[in-house]
Each structure stands twice: as C-alpha cells, then as structure tokens.
Simulated assay, not measured.
Amino acid sequence: MSIINALGFWNTNATRHTPVEDVQGIFSGSLVAALGLYVLASAGLLTGSTAGVAFLLHYAMGINFGLAFFLLNLPFFYLSWKQLGMAFTIKTFIAIAITSLLTNIQSQVFQIASIQPAWAALLGGLLLGFGLLALYRHRASLGGVGILGIYMQERFGIRAGLVQLAIDMCVLAAAFFVTTPSVVFYSVLGAVVLNLFLTINHRADRYIAL
C-alpha cells in the first residue's frame, strides 16, 4: 500500500504530487519538449522564449544549442527563486539541464531525414506544448519566459500562454535578420500552436499544481 501511495495510484483526493510523481513528470516533460525542439530544428525552424534566442545564436554563429539554451536561462533563476520559491527553481533547473542534454543527443538516437516545415511547426509546437504542460503541472518550467509567464498568471491572473506568445513574437521578429521569411512564417505558426495549446490547457481553475 505504501508503494501505491508513493506513486499516487487510485488517489481521488486533492493531494500534493509525490516525489516519484515529480520525477516522472519532470523527466517526461523534458523528454517530450526536447523532442519538439528536435523536430523544429530538423526543419530549420525556430521557436520563442530563450529556446528561440538559443536557436538564433546556433543558426547565426554556430553556437551549440543545448549550451546556449542552458546559459541563457541562468539569469531567470533569480526571479524564480525570489517569486516562485526554492522547490520550483530547483525543479526548473533540473528540467532545463535534462532538456539541454537530450536535445544534444537526439541526433545520435534517431534522425529525421525529411519533414515539411508546416508539419514540423504543428508537430513541434504541440510536442513543446505537451512537454511544458507536464512541467507546469509539476511546478517546473523550461525557464526564461516560462518562469515569467507562470509568475504573471499566479500574481496577476494573466494567462501564461498569452504572456509567452507576446514575447515569442518579439523573439521571432528578430529572426528576420538571420533567416528567410518563409522560415520565420512557419516558426511563428509553431509558436502560435504552442502557446494556444498552453492557453487552453494550462488554467488554474481546472488544475492546481501542488
């Protein structure tokens, strides 16, 4: 029975996530998010937030995406620590580290030989959305705008997906300086898919992460 309780099986009461639930949720969310980033990268597309800036640095200067993604998120940990607490910050740090590592090794596990940009935008956006949703529901994120979005939703009631969408559009606008308009168009499509998915599904009145 203690094992069942630890895993959270058959529990119909509102309780906090167990450590085992957090481990599987953070790892699964990070894995799915890394897969979404790999799908986008396979089509040469970008996304928003700090991942989008990391893509820009990778495409424009050849900087390793995983390393850039990890380093760009470090400044946001101060906001996370001060406003969202130690537990959220630690879990977010772990999620970013796992996602960065998995993104770097994806091509060694499998390769996407060909994918249409529109399909990559839709699939990559949805995979990122599912990954972020799993992390949000276990009180974690992929840093950057995700931290800001959760803070804005919890502090002011502004949907995290809408906050992220607005900032993502600014990041993708900068992509015009390093890539083609068609790539920017499909990247915007992927960002819209991602953030509308989060706006619809990540709502405090339907699911409260404990």
Results as ranks from 00 to 15, higher is better:
I3F: 15
I4G: 14
N5R: 14
G8H: 03
F9I: 04
N13T: 15
T18P: 06
T18E: 07
V20L: 13
V20P: 00
V23T: 13
G29F: 02
G29L: 02
S30W: 01
L37K: 09
L37P: 02
Y38R: 07
A41H: 11
A41E: 09
A41F: 12
A43F: 04
G48K: 00
T50S: 13
A51I: 10
F55A: 12
A60W: 09
F65Y: 07
L67K: 01
F69V: 07
F69P: 01
F70S: 02
L72G: 05
F76S: 05
F77T: 08
W81C: 11
G85T: 05
M86S: 14
A87H: 14
A87C: 12
K91P: 08
T92W: 06
T92H: 08
I94V: 15
I94M: 11
A97Q: 03
A97P: 03
I98R: 09
I98V: 14
L101I: 14
N104Q: 15
F110Y: 14
F110Q: 07
Q111M: 12
I115M: 11
P117E: 11
W119D: 15
L122M: 07
L122N: 01
G125D: 02
L132K: 07
A134E: 10
L135T: 03
L142Y: 09
G143V: 03
L148W: 02
F156W: 09
G157V: 10
R159H: 13
A160D: 06
Q164Y: 12
L165D: 04
A166H: 09
I167D: 03
D168V: 06
M169F: 14
C170H: 00
V171W: 05
A173L: 15
A173R: 10
T179Y: 00
T180Y: 02
P181G: 09
S182D: 06
S182R: 00
Y186W: 11
V188T: 12
L189A: 11
L189G: 11
A191M: 07
V193G: 08
V193M: 10
N195M: 11
L198P: 02
T199I: 00
R206S: 03
L210F: 13
L210P: 11
